[in-house]
């Protein structure tokens, strides 16, 4: 009898543990919505999303520059990370000899393990000075002086492009390896070269999974905070060029939340969080819909 009770009790406890992820997601949504809602009410949803001015001291809250900033930085990151990541994934799945594989695979894992503040420090002390030198010498005449500091869309995009490499490589390689061997054999049997097989058979067949990989990488880039803060310059103004300083949605929260008193300012930051949360949920759903099946993630 006691054993039966214990048996039932343990099952209920495990069931509750399994629910925890759902519970936390609901709690996160509820809490940031409750805290952020007054800001939407005060400023008006459209004014908040499309307003060009962010002046917390005057009580003016418009996050349009940060939305554009997040998109710009993410676009550069994808332009850098997708070709490099995809090519590395194809290399690992198709042509890497075992010795090269033993070198590349741990490298990808280590890239995934480096903390984002370390990427930030690297970007801040290595990439930013290089971009600054470039902006001051090469492009000096054509650039506005305020765009010559090196802290820029370009710096943030480059750092993020490196940071999303592991996501793209791991998922894309899994997807490529999961393609039925018959596709490849059929193509090779018809006399196609290995490269023709990769480009004309494997990649098209793997496309949904690869798109899912890119979308997930996009989600990571939108959500990254520390590395971006350290290299982006963080001015809450619409970025004009690759060399403009830029502030993203994530940096807006991390920069001001530690100093914001309770009230309008912190509510506006929570509202920024709501937008960010909504954005990542949409991206995540898109990835799910694209892949139509669970994609394994590290």
């Amino acid at each position: 009898m006691r054993r039966a009770v214990f048996e039932r009790g343990s099952e209920v406890a495990l069931f509750l543990a399994a629910l925890i992820a759902v519970v936390i997601i609901v709690l996160i949504g509820t809490f940031i919505l409750i805290e952020g809602l007054p800001a939407f009410e005060r400023t008006g949803l459209l004014n908040f999303l499309l307003g060009h001015e962010w002046r917390p001291l005057q009580g003016v809250f418009g996050i349009f520059p940060m939305i554009v900033g997040s998109i710009a930085v993410t676009a550069v990151a994808l332009a850098v990370g997708v070709p490099l990541g995809l090519a590395t994934a194809i290399f690992l799945a198709e042509i890497a000899p075992p010795r090269a594989e033993r070198l590349v695979r741990p490298a990808v894992e280590l890239l995934a393990g480096i903390p984002s503040v370390v990427y930030g420090l690297f970007g801040m002390t290595m990439l930013v000075p290089i971009i600054r030198a470039l902006a001051q010498t090469w492009l000096g005449a054509s650039l506005d002086p305020q765009f010559r500091a090196g802290y820029s869309v370009l710096a943030a995009g480059l750092v993020l492009g490196i940071m999303i490499l592991p996501t793209i490589i791991n998922i894309a390689e899994d997807v490529l390896r999961a393609q039925p061997l018959e596709y490849k054999e059929g193509s090779l049997a018809l006399g196609a070269t290995h490269w023709q097989t990769i480009a004309c058979v494997l990649l098209p067949a793997a496309r949904p999974g690869i798109v899912a990989a890119i979308v997930l990488a996009m989600g990571r880039a939108i959500g990254e905070t520390m590395a971006v803060i350290m290299v982006a310059g963080n001015t809450p103004v619409l970025p004009q060029s690759l060399f403009s300083p830029v502030r993203t949605l994530t940096s807006n929260i991390a920069l001001e939340m530690p100093y914001a008193g309770p009230g309008a300012h912190s509510q506006a930051l929570y509202a920024t969080g709501v937008v960010l949360f909504g954005l990542t949920m949409v991206v995540n759903l898109a990835a799910l819909l694209v892949s139509r099946r669970r994609v394994k993630r590290g």
């Binding site: 992820a21 809490f31 905070t225 929260i253 960010l276 949360f277 991206v283 995540n284 669970r294």
Partner: peptide, 25 residues
């Protein structure tokens, strides 16, 4: 399916949003 969706969604939440949530709760 519900649980897996929760896990996937939780993995996708940006860490600064966890920060806002953790601060409030």
């Amino acid at each position: 399916s519900l649980v897996r969706f929760g896990i996937d969604a939780l993995a996708a939440v940006p860490s600064i949003v966890f920060g806002l949530f953790g601060y409030a709760l």
